[in-house]
């Protein structure tokens, strides 16, 4: 009772009624009851997860050590597919393309989305129209979106070059040259994802208390400085989560590649999933396809864990 001078601190009513052991026991039971309830709610999801995720992924991992298995008889080959995948020059190109694409696309789409979100946040009038307009590409099926772009960037009759030629330009070869093709793919994907990220960041920005920005104003910070020094840092925890989601999304770039370039020219837009798709279906090299898929999964998983770890560390440091 050291330190407490409360009247009655040593009195009978202040004596514990449970022994430490009983206390621990009941605390454990209480926690178990709470988590049992949680598990109860999670169970159906866990079952679905097992059937639709764990099982196929496990099967995929197993097939990466075999040949065949989808069509044709399965035969165990050990690490052969993995060593082949590791040594495949085309996978290297695909990995490099995917990485370059991801860095550019995520940087551009995040920058634009945060900027547009802060504009929409400031100018409420008509913002619903812009939100809808920005979100629209996401509503269109990916293939359709890519088709629309096909008519935008077509060298001959594409809208962009028609405009350029109006102003006396020669027109840009968007899809037939490197690195134009990959940059065009970036543009398509940015166009497609922008609406989602704008709404995402708009929700984040709207959660930044008005008072903070008001205080920044009083402290003499101009709009850009307020944006850079108050809004963006307040979004930082969100940013990391967004980054994880964006990496998962973009590491699987495929649709627009299939519609616009089929990996060309000269493999300039060959991405990892495009590679997997070709090996899997066009050449029935299922082992290599699964080894590459599992590899991609592991890389994405690692990137995700790394991000969560970084987030946890940052939170710990800020606490």
């Amino acid at each position: 009772m050291e330190g407490s001078v409360a009247a009655g601190a040593a009195e009978e009513w202040a004596e514990l009624t449970l022994s430490p052991r009983q206390y621990r026991q009941r605390a454990r039971r209480y926690r178990a009851r709470t988590s049992r309830r949680a598990i109860g709610f999670l169970a159906p999801y866990t079952a679905i997860w097992a059937v639709f995720l764990a099982f196929p992924v496990g099967w995929g991992v197993w097939l990466s050590f075999n040949t065949g298995g989808i069509l044709g008889t399965r035969q165990f080959v050990g690490f052969e597919n993995w060593t082949r995948a590791w040594g495949d020059t085309e996978i290297r190109t695909a990995v490099r393309n995917t990485a370059v694409y991801m860095v550019i696309a995520i940087a551009v789409v995040f920058g634009l989305a945060i900027f547009l979100a802060s504009l929409l946040n400031k100018h409420r009038r008509g913002s619903n129209f812009f939100k809808l307009a920005l979100y629209f590409p996401l509503l269109a099926p990916p293939i359709l979106g890519a088709m629309m772009w096909f008519f935008m960037v077509h060298f001959d009759f594409g809208v962009l070059n028609l405009i350029l030629r109006q102003f006396g330009g020669a027109g840009i070869n968007y899809l037939g040259e490197n690195p134009n093709a990959l940059l065009t793919i970036v543009a398509v994907e940015v166009w497609r994802g922008l609406g989602f990220w704008v709404l995402f960041y708009l929700a984040g920005i709207q959660a930044v208390p008005e008072e903070l920005l008001a205080a920044g104003r009083i402290d003499g910070a101009k709009a850009w400085r307020r944006f850079a020094r108050i809004t963006v840092p307040t979004l930082r925890p969100l940013l990391l989560f967004a980054l994880v989601v964006a990496i998962i999304f973009n590491a699987q770039l495929f649709d627009s590649v299939q519609v616009l370039t089929e990996g060309g020219p000269a493999l300039g837009t060959a991405t990892v999933v495009w590679f997997i798709f070709k090996r899997m279906f066009a050449f029935q090299d299922t082992g290599l396809a699964f080894a590459t898929s599992v590899g991609l999964l592991l890389v994405i998983l690692a990137a995700t864990l790394l991000s969560f770890w970084a987030l946890a560390k940052r939170q710990a440091r800020e606490a």
Binding site: M1, G3, S4, A6, A9, W13, A319
Partner: peptide, 23 residues
């Protein structure tokens, strides 16, 4: 309401330290 030797710690912070109180 009776609190008996109540303690609450958040990590290294002890927010409530051995409080006994009868209301």
């Amino acid at each position: 309401v009776i609190l008996r030797q109540l303690t609450k710690r958040f990590g290294a912070t002890t927010a409530v330290d051995d409080v006994s109180l009868r209301i």
